[in-house]
Design a protein around this nucleic acid. Structure first.
Lengths: 341, 341
DNA sequence: TTGTAAGCGTTATCAG
DNA sequence: CTGATAACGCTTACAA
């Protein structure tokens, strides 16, 4: 109940509330000394203007939302880190929304956020095969949207992605050059555009090297480790691939666990490469060859684009449909090496 | 500009805004049919009540903040995951604040949040040696605070921690039982209570086994990998420890990198154990012995306590100073094994 | 430079 | 069950 508002502070200082209000804004014409006096007293009384009142008044929340499938994940936590850094610099707060990869939650978050709670949204999507018209609402309400990594192709908005096709092509080509003939492609959801794009790189590389595609070698996995191990055990025993290309980090890990269980030696019996940002890839047994996405920088870029749109100057329209493509980096390590190193 | 408010919606429906408002609350006495009619029309027009207006009115934000040193980190990202799950279930949003381990940012976040922006705060602290009186403000403004993992001992509030002393004691004892005589304790900041507590477990275990303490074996590291490698290289060449107990994950990783560089073999020349929640600890070369903190569950617990306090019933006071201690789990793997496995 | 007053879009109280 | 009206705490023309 020790709550104090601008009126009481004004009374305390024998000023009007408008003058006090001005002290908290930079632009307004106000006497330097009165301003000092006000701020000093405010500090004493622990007063700062109520967020909701001023947000209501100025129709702005100074908050952005990040909607992602998960957070306990190398890639997303780094991306969020990047986003938060930019937000902090701009005086914005960051709301975290985890969809758990469920489209319904994504929709419900967006709906819940569209009433002024946030000024903009950065999202990595979870419902490619669904109806995306619910996003129209954001446009109507003038809430800018930036996609990163996982995007909806049919929605025309700002997007920050990586060169997935090229990376996948190169990764597959790398395995081929190391002598692999039967390369398995592991994917979590074939229908996600990101899975498709990466798969296309894989397919085209095979094609370039004149390798026949075996549909069974495209393995649909899940997000659950034990389940993946069982799926992969099956694949390994039935199809005996000599190479594995994991389209996401957790599938590379599942591959390692499976090989450990089945006593399959990497890279002698099967060579492995995967998308992954693990700092400890070199410490794995054996060191894992990786394609590293610049997760942190993607966050930075996505946030940068969003704030450019929010800045609302002439360039705004330009950024509203901006496409940024960052490059991933392929690093060869022992898991895809020839012979015994 | 397609923005619609409750008044226009009311006009559209030939009703008063109070009736329309009631349709969006559950409790209020309102005719079922009119309510349906209102909600239907609202859906058509994409209307839901403005957040700031209602927050201002009801003096509540339905938002909590999580203040942590970093997010691109196994432990914190899992904890946040837990927190978000609980928040979502309670209809709350989660604001993420990253202090980058800087006390000033922590203070500035708390100050910024204390004006109604959030209803409660969950925090893992970054300024043990600083003045914590700034937190008094939260009490005055009736914003509940729950600490987790890293806490301020001098602040009486709800706390969720793990049994750090016991875990450290057991980890050190484990190394001793494996035959180590010169065990290094790696810590990022000796002054943090969490570092102190863990160190005490280490010291007491040494004592129990009649091992003289060598102050040089308590190694103060940083958060930066390359820096840590150089610090550890120094330690290894000068002090030749036969055991390493890493008080946080990144120091276990730094130890591995250092040993790799110096060609020191784990566990033959030095046995290693560390706090870590890495799913891939078994896949490292060699598999890393770990003490696993229940990060996700800590998040769950911390959020549970916070919402119990926010529920504001008789038990509130009880939870406001609740102490929850969860157990970590020690898992022995090859990095601390005897002989060559 | 400061003060007055009109809103921002809700919700809650009180009549009807 | 519904409607009028007064807050909630702040910002911003406009006036002084």
């Amino acid at each position: 109940m020790a709550d104090i508002n601008i009126i009481e502070l004004a009374k305390d200082l024998n000023l009007s509330k408008s003058t006090v209000s001005r002290a908290f804004r930079n632009n307004s014409g106000i006497n330097k000394e009165t301003k000092e006096r006000i701020l000093a007293r405010a500090r004493e009384l622990n007063f700062t203007p109520n967020h909701h009142a001023s947000n209501l008044r100025i129709q702005k929340s100074n908050t952005i939302a990040v909607i992602v499938p998960e957070i306990a994940n190398n890639f997303f936590s780094k991306a969020i880190n990047g986003i938060e850094q930019v937000a902090k610099k701009n005086g914005y707060s960051v709301l975290i929304c985890l969809t758990d990869d469920e489209f319904e939650k994504e929709v419900s978050f967006v709906q819940n956020l569209s009433n002024g709670k946030v000024d903009g949204i950065i999202m990595s999507v979870s419902g490619e095969e669904q109806d995306h018209s619910y996003l129209k609402m954001l446009q109507k309400k003038n809430i800018p949207l930036v996609f990163f990594d996982r995007v909806y192709e049919d929605i025309e908005t700002a997007k920050v992605t990586t060169n997935d096709y090229e990376s996948s092509f190169l990764a597959t080509e790398h395995l081929l050059q190391q002598g692999c003939k039967r390369i398995a492609y592991l994917v979590v959801n074939k229908n996600l555009s990101i899975g498709k794009t990466r798969m296309q790189g894989y397919l085209d590389a095979l094609d370039k090297y004149g390798i026949e595609t075996d549909d069974n070698l495209v393995v649909d996995c899940s997000n659950e480790l034990t389940q993946n191990i069982s799926i992969l055990s099956d694949t390994f025993s039935k199809l005996r691939p000599d190479g594995v290309f994991a389209s996401v980090e957790r599938l590379a890990i599942a591959t390692y666990y499976t090989c450990m269980e089945l006593n399959i030696s990497i890279p002698e019996q099967v060579k492995v490469i995967g998308f992954s940002g693990l700092e400890i890839a070199p410490l794995l047994n054996p060191a894992l060859s990786t394609i590293i996405q610049p997760a942190y920088n993607m966050g930075l870029e996505a946030a940068d684009v969003l704030f450019k749109i929010l800045a609302d100057d002439e360039t705004k329209a330009d950024f509203a449909t901006r496409k940024v493509v960052l490059n991933s980096e392929l690093i060869q390590r022992k898991s895809s090496a020839v012979g015994t190193m």
